[in-house]
Write a protein that binds this DNA or RNA. Structure first.
Lengths: 107, 107
DNA sequence: CCATTTACTTCATCTGTCGTAGTAATTATA
DNA sequence: TATAATTACTACGACAGATGAAGTAAATGG
């Protein structure tokens, strides 16, 4: 299991990646993270929803509703152009970070 | 430059790595991080010293003084057995973290 | 002799994570 | 048919780690 302090800088990036695949909503995204990480990272609900708010405020995602006939109303999110740029920047940063941290890791 | 949120989970690990090389003190460690990272990561003084206190409290490092004839008194640190174990654990975790985050990074 | 570098320390603030708890609807199970 | 579990959130408060600002103190460089 991965500790949250480690992944802290990448929660937003992870969410943006999944929204790049397709527009989605909280519960689905949390399932997808669990699935894609082989259960090695399970994001906390509160962490996820506070990330959504942060990303909304920064204009990296947009929220909307779909007409549903049943079930509790979902808030859907999609990535914006600015969000895509931010995601790409984070990807480059990640390559650099890997390289740098590797220098302080033994075998 | 690497943002601090990304490296947050690895400051302690980086410090332990350098103390594994040899016992050292704050200023020297900060220079070494800058050097080893090719200036791509420069740790803030306050971050460094608060990390020392955290590591001391956890018993991962020990502090001591050397007799000096001049200069401001330095506080030296060395890694403990528990610190070494923690370091090794963090190295394993890092491999896992890399693998997982990579799944959310494009190209 | 004054600036810079070395080598810290204290304090207050901010951000992101997380625990707890609550709401509300649907679906599974006994 | 009652209730437990699952889906899908929201609100709130606490906490840890990073950081900015400022201060202290000694040695060294120009």
């Amino acid at each position: 299991m991965i500790s949250s302090d480690v992944i802290r800088g990448y929660n937003d990036t992870i969410i943006l990646y999944l929204l790049l695949e397709k527009e989605s909503y909280g519960y689905e995204i949390s399932k997808r993270i669990k699935e894609l990480s082989d259960e090695k990272y399970i994001i906390k609900e509160t962490t996820l929803y506070s990330a959504f708010n942060r990303l909304l405020k920064k204009g990296f995602i947009q929220s909307f509703h779909k007409e549903q006939t049943f079930g509790k109303k979902r808030t859907y999110y999609k990535i914006t152009e600015a969000g895509l740029l931010y995601y790409k920047e984070k990807c480059r940063e990640w390559e650099l970070t890997k390289e740098v941290i590797n220098r302080f890791i033994k075998e």
